[in-house]
Computed example of a mutant assay.
Amino acid sequence: MITVIVTMKLNKAITREEGKKIFLSTAPRYKTIEGLVRKYYILSEDGISSGGVYLWTTKAAAEAWYTDSWHEFIKETYNTTPSITYWESPVIVDNILGCTTSDDQEL
């Protein structure tokens, strides 16, 4: 599995409530993406940085999502350019489900 961390510095700070409103408005677009397991929206305490943490089944699935049109959507929504970092995620502990998963198991 692959974890992708997307970060972006905002042009002006936003409050938690402003961030939540934006995040809830964009959340539906992430519900049916092939290979996306989970997405966390993130906002810094000072409200000047935002982003997302994504868990993907494969790097290919992740790379297929971060297209030019996705970058344009981010630019239009947040008026900034994102930074994208890929991380291997060989083991995941899920305390809600009470399990540990490794990347050689099917989800």
Score class of each variant (00 low, 15 high):
M1D: 10
M1L: 13
T3N: 14
V4I: 14
V4Y: 08
V6Q: 11
V6M: 12
V6H: 06
T7D: 10
M8T: 02
M8C: 07
M8E: 09
K9C: 03
K9A: 14
A13I: 03
A13Q: 09
A13M: 04
A13E: 07
I14C: 00
T15W: 02
E18M: 04
K20D: 04
K20H: 06
L24T: 03
L24S: 08
A27P: 01
A27C: 05
K31S: 09
K31M: 02
K31V: 02
K31A: 08
K31G: 05
I33F: 00
I33E: 02
E34M: 08
R38M: 10
R38W: 06
K39L: 09
I42T: 13
I42Y: 03
L43Q: 01
D46G: 07
I48H: 10
S49A: 06
S50M: 12
G51S: 08
G51D: 06
G51W: 01
V53Y: 01
V53D: 08
Y54N: 05
Y54A: 01
L55V: 15
L55P: 04
W56D: 12
T57P: 02
T57G: 11
T58P: 10
A61Q: 11
A62V: 08
A62E: 11
E63S: 10
E63K: 15
E63W: 07
A64V: 02
T67Q: 03
D68W: 00
S69K: 03
H71P: 00
E72P: 00
F73T: 01
I74C: 02
I74K: 00
I74T: 08
K75I: 00
E76P: 00
E76C: 00
T77Q: 09
Y78G: 05
N79M: 02
T80N: 06
T81V: 11
T81Y: 02
P82M: 00
T85A: 15
T85C: 13
T85K: 15
Y86A: 11
W87P: 00
W87G: 09
W87F: 15
E88V: 12
V91G: 04
D94N: 15
D94M: 04
D94W: 13
D94C: 11
N95A: 12
I96Y: 09
I96E: 14
L97C: 05
C99W: 01
T100Y: 05
S102Q: 12
D104K: 15
D104M: 10
D104Q: 09
E106I: 13
